[in-house]
Design a protein around this nucleic acid. Structure first.
Lengths: 350, 350
DNA sequence: CTGAAAGCGCTTACAG
DNA sequence: CTGAAAGCGCTTACAG
C-alpha cells in the first residue's frame, strides 16, 4: 500500500508559519485574518492537499455538518433527480445529506424527523413538495429552530427561503405554445386540488387563452389528480364526444401519457389528430411514443441552490441571504413529438 | 427549547456501574464481557436511550463508518430504488452511505473513486451493475484492500461477495409463463451483448422452449440493447412480417414497452393479438397501457443484504460471511395485463 | 474479563 | 488580528 498520510491542520499551520487557529479561521471564514497569513495558509492547504477531517470538525464544533432531505416517495423521478444532485452538492461543501421519506403513516414520519433533529442533529433541512406544505413538519422545524428551505411550496410566505418555478407562467407558456402551433380548441386536465400549483397552472392556461381571444369552454377543463390512472377518465371525458379538442395541456406528464393512451384506444392519432403537452419532463416523457412535449423544472439547479442556501447560511453569520427569500427559477419548454400543428390548419394552408 | 441532552458513554457507564471501556466493548461486540455487566450496560443504554456519537467514534477509531455506492446513471429507476433502500439500511446500522455515479468519462470517475478511498476513507463499497464488471475499478479496490460487494456482476468469481438473481431462471420463468398461457410462437428481444445477463436470459428462453418441445425460430430472436429506442427496430423486424409471433419476451421493460408501441402502430392489439413480457419491473411498467407483465428483482432485499455484508463484516472479525460468497436471491413474476391467452386458442376452446 | 490513561484532529472560549 | 490551552466523546493500546 502506498497509502498517503492525510495532512492535518497542524501540518498546514507549520508549513504556513502560523498557529492552528489561524488555519481554522481561514478555512471557516467569517473572521478577519491578515491578507498575508491568509495567503500563506491557502498556499499550504493547496500544497498539502489538505481537507479538514470531518469527524474531528464535527466533534469539536458540535455542528453536524449534515442536512436532511425530506420527501414523499410518490414521484420517484422528481425525487431521485433532486436527491442525486443534492448528494453531489453536499459533498462539494463537505456536508452529508441525510435523506428521509414517508414510508408508513405521517406520524411515523414525524417521529423520524424528530429523530433527525435530536439524534442526528442535522444543521438544516430541505423540504420537497408536497412535504414543504405540511404544517406539522413545518412547526416542528420552527420550534426546534432548524433552518430549512422549501421546494415548490404552496404557501409563499416568508417563514423560510423557498425555491420554485412560476407555475402560472409554466401553464401560460405551454398553452401559448399550443396556440402558436395553430390550435384553438385546447383542453386542460387539472392537477390535484390540494396543491396550489394545480390552480396556478390552470390560471396560466386560462390567461393565455384569454390573451389570445380564445374561448375557454368549461367542458374542456376536467379534473385530474396527477396520477396516470386519474388521467384516463379525464381524457375520456375530453375525447369521447364529437366536438373534441385538438390539443390537451395536462398539468403533469403522467396525465399527458394517459391522454395519449386514451386517444390511441379511441383511434385518435397523436400528434396528427391530437396534440398533447405535459409538465415535469419525467422519465416516461421519452420512453413513451410519441415523445412528450413538456415543461422541465430546473431540478439540478434547485438542488444546488437549496444546499448552498443551507450551508452558506450556516458558515457565515452575514445575512446576505435573508431567511425568507423567494427564489423563482426559470423553466424550459421542451418541444418533442407529441404536439404539432392541427390537421385542419394544414389542409387550410394548402 | 426543551432540548434533551444526549447521553454520553460516561453516563451509561456510571448508571451501569462499569467503566467507559466496558460500555464500548459491549456496544462494539467481538470482545468478551461478563454476562452480568453486559446486561447492566444494555439496560443503561436502553434507559438513557443512548446511541454513540458518530463523530467521536470516527475520530477515535480511524474508521469512517461510511460505505460507498458506485453506480452508472443509466437506469435511473433501478439505481434510485437501490439507493433509497441502501440509505435506510445504512442508517439502521449507524453508517453513512456515500453514493457516486459516472458523470463524465470513466477516468474522471476513477479519480472520484480514488478520492473516496483516500479522502473520505470509506470502509467498503457496493458496486451496482454494470460497474460491478469494470476491471479498472475492481483492481483499484483490490489494491487498496477495500472490501466490496458486487451486485449482478457478469463474472461470478470469488473476488468478493456478490448478490444477484439467477438470470437464466428469470428468462426461463417468463418464457414458461408465456407458454403456460398457450403461446407457441414466442419471440425474444435480446439485451446488450456486453452483459452476461443478456446471454443468460436468452439461454433461459431457449431452454424453456426446448423443455416444452417448441421450435426456436432464428428469425424470432432479435438483437436489442436495453434501450427503448433499440427496441423499436427489433420489434419491427418481429412484427412487420406475415407470420408473426403471438408473444414476445423482451430482455427488459424498456424494450417491452417499445414492442407494445410498435404493435400499436401496426394495428396489432396488446394483449389480444400480442402478449408481451419484460424484465425489471421498472417505473414505466405501470405507467404504460396495458400494464406490463414482467419480472421483479428484489432490489430492496439486495440493498439491505449488501449493506449488511459490508457492515457486519467490518464489526465482527469472524469469517461467518466468507468474502466470496454468492448470494442468489429469488425474483418474482409479476402478472399484469400485457400478457394473456393467444386469440387463436380462445376460439379453439369454444 | 476489566479499567486508567492517552490521543484522534479539530474548534471554542479565553487572553492579549 | 493572533495564539496557547482545554475539551468534544469516543476507542486504542497498555496494564493487570
Amino acid at each position: 500500500m502506498e497509502k498517503v498520510k492525510r495532512a492535518r491542520i497542524q501540518d498546514v499551520a507549520e508549513l504556513a508559519g502560523v498557529s492552528n487557529m489561524t488555519v481554522s479561521r481561514v478555512l471557516n471564514g467569517g473572521v478577519k485574518v491578515s491578507e498575508v497569513k491568509r495567503k500563506a495558509v491557502m498556499n499550504a492547504v493547496e500544497r498539502l492537499n489538505y481537507s479538514p477531517d470531518a469527524a474531528a470538525r464535527r466533534l469539536a464544533s458540535k455542528k453536524s455538518y449534515m442536512i436532511g432531505l425530506l420527501y414523499q416517495d410518490l414521484d420517484i423521478s422528481y425525487v431521485s433527480k433532486f436527491l442525486l444532485r443534492a448528494l453531489k452538492s453536499c459533498r462539494n461543501v463537505d456536508h452529508h445529506l441525510v435523506p428521509d421519506g414517508i414510508d408508513g403513516d405521517i406520524d411515523e414520519f414525524y417521529r423520524a424527523v424528530k429523530k433527525l433533529i435530536d439524534v442526528t442533529q442535522i444543521d438544516g433541512v430541505i423540504l420537497l413538495a408536497p412535504i414543504s406544505n405540511n404544517p406539522q413538519i413545518l412547526e416542528l422545524l420552527q420550534n426546534a429552530q432548524i433552518p430549512f428551505v422549501r421546494i415548490s411550496p404552496d404557501d409563499h410566505s416568508n417563514i423560510s427561503p423557498l425555491i420554485a418555478i412560476d407555475e402560472f407562467k409554466a401553464g401560460y407558456a405551454m398553452t401559448e405554445y399550443l396556440i402558436s402551433l395553430g390550435h384553438t380548441k385546447i383542453a386542460h386536465i387539472k392537477g390535484h386540488p390540494n396543491q396550489a400549483a394545480s390552480r396556478l397552472r390552470e390560471e396560466g392556461f386560462e390567461a393565455a387563452m384569454q390573451a389570445n381571444n380564445l374561448k375557454i369552454r368549461p367542458e374542456y377543463i376536467v379534473q385530474g389528480y396527477y396520477t396516470y390512472d386519474s388521467g384516463i377518465p379525464a381524457s375520456h371525458a375530453l375525447l369521447a364526444g364529437d366536438d373534441r379538442p385538438t390539443a390537451i395541456f395536462a398539468a403533469n406528464d403522467e396525465m399527458a401519457a394517459a391522454a395519449i393512451s386514451v386517444a390511441n384506444k379511441l383511434g385518435i392519432k397523436t400528434p396528427q389528430q391530437l396534440s398533447v403537452g405535459g409538465l415535469d419532463d419525467a422519465q416516461l416523457a421519452v420512453t413513451m411514443s410519441p415523445h412528450l412535449t413538456t415543461i422541465r423544472q430546473p431540478i439540478m439547479e434547485m438542488a444546488e441552490l437549496a444546499v448552498d442556501l443551507l450551508t452558506s447560511n450556516m458558515m457565515q453569520t452575514n445575512k446576505l441571504l435573508a431567511r425568507g427569500h423567494r427564489h423563482i427559477l426559470d423553466f424550459e419548454l421542451v418541444k418533442r413529438q407529441s404536439a404539432t400543428y392541427p390537421e385542419i390548419n394544414i389542409s387550410t394552408n394548402k
